[in-house]
């Protein structure tokens, strides 16, 4: 998780080259409860940092997922359509949402690293 960055809205982004993989944190999936549906962006869509990118639904709640960085969607995790529970079971692994080709990797500098996020979450509880 060392290269992973976090937002205050509980998204994570992990960068490999100029491609970032995005998902939601363990804290976020815990708060949502059983995830029942994930609505993902279309491949090719241009996302703005902080703009709405996806929606995750549980039985009693729905949350927008905001893009942690700007860029073009290159791949989405189709398997979530049939198996939304993966988000609960493996939020940092198979439960990833989508990948983007970063248009400005410097944007990531403003995000929290794992330690900072951990203390951010502790402050919420």
């Amino acid at each position: 998780m060392s290269g992973t960055k976090f937002t205050e809205d509980h998204e994570w982004i992990s960068v490999d080259g100029d491609v970032g993989t995005v998902g939601i944190s363990d804290y976020a999936q815990e708060q949502l409860g059983d995830v029942v549906f994930v609505e993902l962006p279309e491949v090719g869509r241009q996302l703005e940092k902080g703009g709405e990118a996806a929606v995750v639904e549980s039985v009693k709640a729905a949350s927008e997922i905001y893009a942690p960085a700007s860029g073009e969607v290159t791949e989405i995790n189709d398997s979530l359509e049939d198996a939304p529970a993966t988000v609960n079971q493996s939020p940092f692994g198979d439960g990833w949402f989508f990948k983007i080709k970063l248009s400005d990797p410097d944007e990531l500098d403003a995000l929290m690293d794992e330690a900072a996020y951990k203390s951010f979450v502790e402050g919420l509880e």
């Binding site: 029942v36 549906f37 639904e57 549980s58 039985v59 009693k60 709640a61 729905a62 927008e64």
Partner: peptide, 12 residues
């Protein structure tokens, strides 16, 4: 599928 509805989704 209540997450479509106003009591959860409000303005969306």
């Amino acid at each position: 599928l209540s997450a479509r509805e106003q009591h959860i989704r409000r303005e969306k």
